[in-house]
């Protein structure tokens, strides 16, 4: 009886060995591999900045005008810089709002390339190289034609730059 058990165990062990051999056999083929390591893919950054941004602390405004009368105007330099590692192209979006920005004679906002406000500037597709910056001049003007309906009112102006990569684009 003990003998039979031993035989069975032996038989089973042999079968197991056979199975191992078969499984092992399927990998036994000549192989060779080659590799190339350390391939680097570094993504660039696209970042545009203004010398006065909403995210700055403390945050400064380009215009803070009080006691304005029709015919008044103000021009301020705005420095736009490329703070990323890729060349960029930006569009300038200027807007006025509030009571002074509405009605029949709203405050106007325009951009110039000179401090005197004589040379108009194309506000779209402005290219800035990496590390470059440019100064543009933004002018707000309260039209002379504005009537009494604008008295005692306030308004807001916003200057926004939207950039995209120039490469492949």
């Amino acid at each position: 009886m003990a003998n039979l058990k031993k035989t069975m165990a032996m038989a089973m062990a042999t079968t197991a060995l056979g199975a191992t051999l078969i499984a092992g056999g399927s990998f036994a083929i000549f192989t060779s591999s080659v590799q190339n390591t350390g391939n680097t893919f570094a993504a660039g950054t696209l970042k545009i900045g203004l010398d006065k941004e909403d995210t700055d602390t403390p945050y400064a405004k380009y215009f803070n005008l009080t006691n304005w009368a029709p015919g008044d105007s103000s021009i301020q330099p705005v420095v736009v810089s490329n703070e990323g590692t890729l060349e960029l192209r930006y569009d300038l979006a200027l807007a006025v709002g509030g009571d002074l920005g509405g009605g029949t004679h709203p405050v106007t906002i325009k951009v110039y390339s000179d401090a005197a406000g004589t040379i108009a500037l194309t506000a779209t597709d402005r290219v800035l190289a990496v590390g470059a910056s440019e100064t543009i001049y933004v002018k707000v003007e309260f039209p002379k034609d504005a009537g009494n309906e604008y008295q005692g009112k306030s308004g807001t102006a916003s200057i926004k730059v939207d950039a995209e990569q120039t490469k492949n684009n």
Partner: peptide, 15 residues
Amino acid sequence: QGKSVNFTFKNTFEQ
């Protein structure tokens, strides 16, 4: 943006 990553390319051949 701004990330730098590395890869290994490996090729295995058999008979």
